[in-house]
Amino acid sequence: MVNKTLSGVSDFTSLRIPIDKVGVEERVERFQKRSIKNGSKLEGLKLILNMIDLTTLEGKDTPSKVKQMCYKAQHLHDVHAGLPTVAAVCVYPNFVKLAKESLKGSNVKVASVATAFPSGQAPLSIKLEDTKLALDSGADEIDMVISRGKFLSGDYNFVYDEIAAIKEVCGEARLKVILETGELVTLDNVRLASDIAMYAGADFIKTSTGKISPAATMQVTYVMLTAIRDFMYKTGVQVGMKPAGGISNSKLALQYMVMLYETLGPDWMSNEWFRFGASSLANDVLMQIVKQETGRYQSADYFSID
């Protein structure tokens, strides 16, 4: 699927789509003003849980932490029946094997960051090795980072070629391309980077590594969603979206769901096409679900923090 539709695009500058930031902010405000209640809230929360990529990406990660997280991924809150699992766990390549084993028999996928995450400051050969390591260890999904420095210097072809090369080694594994929007600064850049990533073969585009502030924002995600919509319109190819970092409570996640629903519609309303990269979101969603079903406000003490 590499070079899906790139015929004729030799200069990515010509892809530049202007974005008016104030207009984007106004649109996002409208999403935030939607009031999600009762049944739609419960349905939305369950969907959110099912879309989470439970993530740990720290230098101090240990095998036991990864194991615990994998357990949590399958047993979110066992005292409450009828809850979905999360979509995937997201770890460093080193932990892919362990995660894969821990999740055996479940539907939960293993995603691995790769390509010299989070900075991407390494030659392509190393990035390819990094990716192969993750794949060989059994990763179902690869979360790569783009070379932001090259992007900002205008070397769009470099960025494109790198993504295309990674995609090639991914084979069946789905490739999520992290734009690190916090370093791209403008929404016009976010839009262009989204387009480059999709033309280069991304199965998902993802906002952030979680290591740079700001991470995912609704504004940035909105621009990426419209890029996905336009790409679908132009090529007929559906691409997924993953905001990551900074989405830590249900209310905000529901606002993302509203945005997704009103921008891309029901075809994207599943974990096949939308993910939340988050570590602490799951528990807040769980608390809200239990509150919604019992009518009782919840305490964090009753939800495990793995």
Binding site: R34, S35, I36, K37, N38, G39, S40, K41, E43, G44, L47, M232, Q238, M257, Y261, G265, P266, D267, M269
Partner: peptide, 19 residues
């Protein structure tokens, strides 16, 4: 994108009244 019917969309998600 595959166009779903209005009913299918509603089945997936809809906004409950929030008066």
């Amino acid at each position: 994108m595959a166009k779903k019917t209005e009913k299918e969309i509603k089945n997936i998600w809809t906004y409950d009244p929030a008066p």
